Computed example of a mutant assay.
Amino acid sequence: MSLETFQKSDALSLGVELELQLVNTHDYDLAPYAEDMLRLMTKTPLPGAVVPEMTSSMIEVSTGVCRSSSEVLGQLSQIRDALVKCADKLNIAVVGGGTHPFQQWHERRIYDKPRFRELSELYGYLSKQFTIFGQHVHVGCPDADTALLTLHRMSRYIPHFIAMSASSPYVQGQDTAFDSARLNSVFAFPLSGRAPFALTWDDFTTYYDKMTRTGVVKSMKDFYWDIRPKPEFGTIEIRVFDTPLTVERAAALAGFVQALAAWFMEDQPFMPTEDDYLVYTYNRFQACRFGLDAAYVDPGTGQHMPLREHIQLTLHQVQRHAARLGASSFIHMLQSSVERAENDARWLRERQGEEELLAEVIRQAAQRFRGGMAHAQQG
């Protein structure tokens, strides 16, 4: 299949997808209720979409095209409130987080959809192990070449995205010692990792044509890259975020992406090179393993520094763009949490330290996801 034409989109427009956990309210294990949730959700008119994911205890929600991170929050809040109401009717709960802390992968069921069945046949047990939960952020690009340039500039900030969104410290009941263990499951797939270094759409098309000729790739969906172009939307899609525990943090991360993209497109702060990728895998591992306590090697200067320092520097660099885009409050929220070395992985570990029961941690995470809905119910 030939590569799709890169569609026109508004520069810096946003779209956000969240993969969410469905858990029962008995022992807070995953519950195969995706079909029931989808049936109930169709009765409520909402922005964006609600669709199934690989296994039947997952659901994916997405916004429509948004102009600002505040609009992202508005749409996600509306979808979240509808999800919570539907879940209450089914006596289940909806939870954020990049992994379910104690689910057993072999108990999962593949959702009955042709693409998921096909992937299950190809990838075997990896398909059920793909019961992991991420946030994807799309940012609009004015043309295809700008999209590729922005993609490769953005790659320097993959560790920042991982550390700030990390919410998957537990797998199969064990503390993995990673802040983001979710990405270890993604890396098992043969077409994961980084995009090829192509700065023009012509060069990228040549690469894509070579890959399709091998028969390994049939469409862009077959690439599980950390960032990939989405020509049908006119965007690039950043895929390394764990799903946060709240929609507010999801919107804040989208605001950070938008402000970064504005900085890249308007100020052209640096030119990406293939050498940027010499330290890419090292930086990504550090962020997955240590979160905000990771070490970071600046690909441009080779300087070693704490990742937290580089995140704070970056948040300061994009402040002017964030202000113009109406994202200042979100950038401030992220700055405050980085200064306190707080991310969702730390919150989950602190709750487990207090409760010593992962089911109770999930119950509290479900309350956290409800946000204002929890207060409304109590009132």
Rank of each mutant, 00 (worst) to 15 (best):
K8H: 10
D10H: 09
L14D: 03
V16G: 14
E19V: 10
L20G: 09
T44I: 15
P45Q: 15
P47T: 00
G48L: 07
V51R: 14
I59R: 10
E60N: 00
V61H: 08
S69Q: 00
V72C: 07
D81K: 04
N91R: 04
V95I: 08
G98A: 15
G98S: 08
H106W: 14
R109V: 13
Y125E: 10
I132N: 08
V139N: 00
A144M: 00
S155R: 05
R156D: 01
I158T: 10
H160T: 01
F178G: 07
L183F: 06
S185G: 13
S192H: 05
R194C: 05
K210A: 00
R213P: 06
V216Q: 05
K218Q: 12
S219F: 02
M220G: 09
F223C: 09
I227E: 05
R228C: 05
V240H: 14
L245T: 12
V247W: 01
E248C: 01
A250G: 06
A252C: 07
W263G: 00
Q268D: 07
D275S: 04
V279H: 15
V279Y: 15
D298G: 00
G302H: 06
L313K: 10
G326Q: 06
A327G: 02
S329N: 12
R340H: 14
D344L: 02
D344N: 09
R346G: 06
E355C: 06
Q364W: 11
M373G: 13
